[in-house]
Design a protein around this nucleic acid. Structure first.
Lengths: 125, 125
DNA sequence: TGCAGACATGCAAATTAAAACATATCGACT
DNA sequence: AGTCGATATGTTTTAATTTGCATGTCTGCA
């Protein structure tokens, strides 16, 4: 889809989203959590990360907790107290998931492009 | 992901969803609408379709209206009055979208299987 | 040893989404 | 002409999410 000019389907595009979950549909690792994790890695704290991606600290904290509970392993190593009040870092598992997610997205992007090209010829005009 | 037994990532699965939208992220045709359209085709009315897929008539009607507005063409031909109070049928455009969506899903499914196979070996153990 | 500031968490308040409800319209068939 | 049941929509409730608030914990450092 999204192809030859003049077709009524010209400006329609195919999109997708990916997520990881445990068997019972639970423990979803979606783009939101991935972005949160990336921001934690970048900023060094859950709080700054929540601020950066503009969600409440309460929610950020709750989401991570939920994911960890469903996955049965930790994603974030959190430290309370200290000079700056505390800080957080990602576990190796979280890094693994981020990399996997990134690579999967890249692969899918390629796939989507191929599929799209193949289709718009058939659909339009 | 979701691969070799014994790995801590063993029961994590990759899921995805596809949708069609116009350039500005609007006019989303997702699996829900596709199912609604299929049900309208099968049952012959918006009302029976809404009942079948268990959403309110109000919502079904609103969703279709929104999609049509964003796409700028009609998906459903609706008839009021008459023996049975009224009925609805799909337009050719709706049929086209359903077929495209189905085929795109099939293509994507093939792609996801390939990509998944390629990945779980790398991720697990 | 007390302060600062992030982590931790329950709970109430606000926002958003969805369902229900209430009416009105339409038109082939009796 | 009157009926029946689906379409058409605005309005109101209800349910689900999020945010916001309050309060407490922890610990390196001045």
């Amino acid at each position: 889809m999204a192809g030859s000019k003049g077709s009524k389907y010209y400006d329609i595009f195919l999109k997708y989203s990916l997520w990881l979950c445990t068997n019972e549909e639970k423990g979803i690792i979606d783009e939101n959590i991935i972005n949160l994790l990336k921001s934690i890695k970048k900023t060094g704290s859950l709080k700054s990360a929540a601020d950066e991606i503009k969600i409440s600290y309460r929610k950020a904290w709750g989401n991570i907790k939920d994911s960890e509970n469903h996955l049965n392993f930790k994603l974030v190593e959190k430290q309370r107290g200290g000079k700056d009040g505390g800080h957080s870092t990602l576990t190796q598992d979280a890094e693994t998931l981020i990399n996997a997610f990134n690579e999967l997205n890249a692969e899918f992007n390629t796939a989507i492009n191929k599929i799209t090209k193949k289709f718009f010829n058939k659909i339009n005009n």
